[in-house]
């Protein structure tokens, strides 16, 4: 069954958003979101990796023996992550330092493996690339929302610019780990309550086909 391009975009950005609906790729989305610039770099890096690894793995899907596909997937992903790592080191050395091991950890980011397992294996290269691209953009969107809240409330700045015009005290807790967990919990709660309410209405259109949900289990580790 071929999915339309529109359906791919809608599914990845909204109904099956990788972070807040599938609960994948949480590690980095919580760890880097106390500073907006870091989140943006991380989001772009992950989007690049997901799109290109989905494209490559989908193009190779008929040539990879099933038994060794996990290791092949990991190696293809690792190649792209190394490119991203070198690029960030060269053009944004400060951010590379701040991100620390989290750029390397894109390799084990469950989103990429999840897209490769659940989608790129069964679909043609172009659609797989779009799927990876928009999965990455959905991740970036969540990161930007989280980091906006955390940076504005925690440091009183927006992309490093001082926006604290009222000179209100900043909330240190916002840049610490617990706030990240609470914020993502609230986002998941709001979105799933909203989608549940929508699907309960009889007049609403049927939800987009979601073949990804159970199949993503392979990448959930």
């Amino acid at each position: 069954m071929k999915e339309s391009v529109r359906a791919v975009i809608r599914r990845n950005l909204w109904t099956d958003n990788q972070v807040v609906r599938q609960v994948l790729g949480i590690c980095s989305s919580l760890a880097v979101t106390n500073v907006m610039a870091n989140s943006l770099v991380m989001g772009v890096g992950l989007t690049f990796t997901t799109a290109l690894s989905s494209l490559t793995l989908s193009a190779l899907r008929n040539y990879i023996p099933r038994r060794i596909r996990m290791i092949v997937q990991t190696l293809v992903i690792a190649v792209y992550v190394i490119l991203v790592d070198i690029a960030i080191k060269a053009y944004a050395p400060d951010i590379s330092k701040a991100l620390g091991p989290y750029v390397g950890l894109i390799i084990t980011n469950c989103i990429i493996m999840g897209r490769a397992e659940a989608y790129a294996q069964k679909n043609p290269p172009f659609l797989s690339m779009l799927d990876g691209l928009f999965a990455g953009l959905g991740y970036t969107a969540v990161l930007m929302i989280l980091s906006t809240i955390r940076e504005v409330m925690g440091f009183g700045t927006f992309f490093g610019l001082d926006v604290n015009v009222l000179n209100a005290p900043t909330w240190t807790i916002m840049v610490m780990p617990p706030a990240a967990f609470f914020l993502i919990a609230v986002m998941i709660w709001i979105l799933s309550a909203h989608l549940q309410k929508k699907s309960a209405k009889p007049a609403a259109p049927p939800p987009a086909p979601a073949p990804a949900a159970p199949a993503a289990a392979g990448g959930k580790a």
């Binding site: 609960v23 617990p178 706030a179 990240a180 967990f181 609470f182 993502i184 919990a185 609230v186 998941i188 709660w189 709001i190 979105l191 799933s192 309550a193 909203h194 549940q196 309410k197």
Partner: peptide, 16 residues
């Protein structure tokens, strides 16, 4: 409450 079951409440517990 609706929507809080599953992952959401797990994150709240982890936050605590």
């Amino acid at each position: 409450p609706k929507g809080l079951e599953g992952p959401a409440i797990t994150f709240v517990i982890t936050g605590l």
